[in-house]
Design a protein around this nucleic acid. Structure first.
Length: 518
RNA sequence: GGCGCGUUCGUCUAGGGGUUAGGACGCCGGCCUCUCAAGCCGGUAACACGGGUUCAAAUCCCGUACGCGCUACCA
């Protein structure tokens, strides 16, 4: 049975790199009919775990990455919170002690610091002398009467090497003598991450540990703990890290604000901010950020687009396939085709996937996606406005993310609330001397024209243009600004048809009046 | 500093001894056109560097540079 896991710390947000790691674990489990486990690594977090975990679980739910065992769903290998597994870890530490693979150590931090400094002075690599190691209970007791505090350290081998096969990197070898005697249990009895991780992977019967590259160097430690306890080793696969756009620098959780200085991130962020401002979503500096999954959900990206983009960040099927349904991802995913070099996150390419997926959706689906944004922005009430479908039709691929509908708010606002783009107004109506006359002339034609469908309107305008001996550009842009307040938009005649005679005439009058005022 | 991992167009990647080094995003140009977007056509652009091995190296080996990680009583 293939069992994989993703083990997030409750940090309050779901990071894009974490999603990719989780996705690969999930796909691998699904590919092989296995189970995907979510385990919460909260060994040191004391406060507000639920609160900090909620956005992470919500993010996975939104993406459709479901877990077979873990928070909210339970499972046979629980509890799935490391904070609740202290007894298991303590027992493992006792086991290590009994087998002589760990020892009680009574060195103070200062004493350790001195040893370390001395080694550095001599330019030698530091290796703890084990001077305050308690050989037996008596010695431990003596140290304790001196007032020393004991921790448990791993008694790492000091010769030979640790060799293992990484499913992505191949054969890997580390000298045991380079490994420190790491602390696995503090004086207060609490246990540290590496111990917890190695023990849980075994206790939860994880068959494949697929995790970030940063853990490759930690693996000998995990292997030592596992083999010392007599555990069968899982398979290991270390994923390359995800880098910043246009760089090989690792994408880090701690530099959120720095990323906004990156031009590509800044543009994506700005686009999102424009939408969030109108929907009233809080633009929190620490979560409204293109390295956090929440950002994409708020703005109206499609989960599938994000997954399709992420699956190709470090993995590929061949030299050409880029579009995958979830089923196809599951069918084709393999560890062998994961790249071992880092991949940088490219928000522009993500947008290309988003655009592509969006345009494939049927109209009904796009309508449902867009409605919440119109409601949140206060542009429509509870009722579905009948003209929404034609608007979406006419908008075509101009709506890339669901929130983009707000760029076309002019269809939804009352005439008197129509906002004018000053530059466009000036260029198309203010500046040309004859603009008002031409617009007024066309208004007269519109007023008496029966057929208000796009085709008929186009014919009307073209004959008007010919008759007046003017260029199409002299009237069409003027009408656009008058009817929508904007200099750009979708097809003019579709726009007029959607607005209808009454609103078009009203808005032209309003624009002419505005023109007279200035 | 030591150890480990990595390095193909700006970015994601294919290719793993013989290829005009392929595709995608971006970018640039053209066409279309009522603006914008799209679409269509075309173009730009890469094997980090230096040594080997070989008839032949992007591909295998060694070294260098650079990046990242580990070297914590963080995860």
């Amino acid at each position: 049975m293939i069992r994989t896991r993703f083990a997030p710390s409750p940090t309050g947000y779901l990071h894009i790199g974490g999603v990719r790691t989780a996705l690969f674990n999930w796909l691998y489990a699904r590919r092989h009919g296995g189970r995907f486990v979510l385990r919460i690594d909260d060994t040191d977090a004391s406060r507000n775990v639920d609160e900090a975990l909620a956005p992470i679980l919500a993010g996975f739910r939104w993406l459709g990455i479901d877990w077979d065992e873990g928070p909210e769903v339970g499972g046979d290998y629980g509890p799935y919170y490391q904070s609740q597994r202290g007894a298991t870890y303590s027992a493992a530490v006792d086991g290590l002690l009994e087998r002589g693979c760990a020892y009680r150590d009574y060195a103070t931090p200062e004493e350790l610091g001195e040893e370390r400094a001395a080694a550095q002075e001599k330019k030698e690599r530091f290796l703890y002398s084990r001077r305050w190691m308690a050989e037996d209970d008596d010695q431990a007791a003596r140290f304790e009467t001196e007032g020393r505090q004991g921790v448990v350290r791993l008694k790492m081998p000091r010769e030979g090497s640790c060799q293992f096969t990484d499913l992505i990197r191949g054969e890997v070898e580390f000298d045991w003598a380079r490994e420190q005697d790491h602390v696995v249990q503090r004086a207060d009895g609490s246990c540290l991450y590496h111990l917890a991780s190695a023990v849980d992977d075994h206790e939860m019967a994880i068959s494949h540990v697929i995790r970030a590259e940063e853990h490759l160097s930690n693996t000998p430690r995990h292997i030592f703990i596992a083999t010392s306890l007599g555990f069968e080793l899982p398979e290991y696969a270390h994923l390359p890290y995800v880098a910043e756009p246009g760089s090989k620098t690792k994408l880090s959780k701690r530099k959120l604000d720095k990323y906004l200085k990156n031009a590509e991130f800044a543009r994506i962020h700005e686009h999102g901010r424009r939408i969030a401002e109108r929907t009233g979503h809080e633009i929190a500096a620490d979560t409204f950020n293109p390295v956090i999954v929440d950002f994409y959900r708020e703005v109206g990206y499609l989960p599938h687009a994000l997954l399709n983009y992420l699956v190709l960040l470090g993995w590929s099927l061949d030299d050409k396939t880029e579009q995958f349904t979830i089923e196809e991802m599951i069918e084709h995913f393999s560890l062998e085709r994961i790249n071992s070099a880092p991949a940088s996150f490219d928000p522009q390419k993500l947008m290309a996937f988003q655009d592509d997926h969006m345009q494939r959706l049927p109209l009904e689906t796009r309508r449902e996606l867009v409605l919440p944004y119109l409601r949140a922005a206060g542009l429509i009430g509870a009722q579905l406005p009948v003209q929404l479908d034609p608007i979406l039709e006419a908008a075509g691929d101009r709506i890339k993310v669901a929130g983009d509908i707000l760029d076309f708010d002019d269809f939804f606002v009352a005439d008197k609330d129509l906002a004018y783009d000053d530059d466009a107004f000036e260029k198309r109506l203010g500046k040309p001397d004859d603009a008002a006359g031409i617009l007024a002339g066309f208004r007269e034609r519109l007023a008496t024209h029966e057929d208000f469908r796009a085709e008929a309107l186009e014919a009307l305008m073209r004959s008007f243009v010919e008759e007046q001996g003017i260029k199409l550009g002299q009237i069409i842009h003027a009408v656009r600004v008058a009817a929508t307040g904007k200099g750009v938009g979708f097809g003019m005649f579709e726009t007029l048809e959607i607005l209808g005679r009454e609103r078009v005439l009203g808005r032209i009058d309003q624009a002419l009046a505005r023109l007279g005022d200035t």
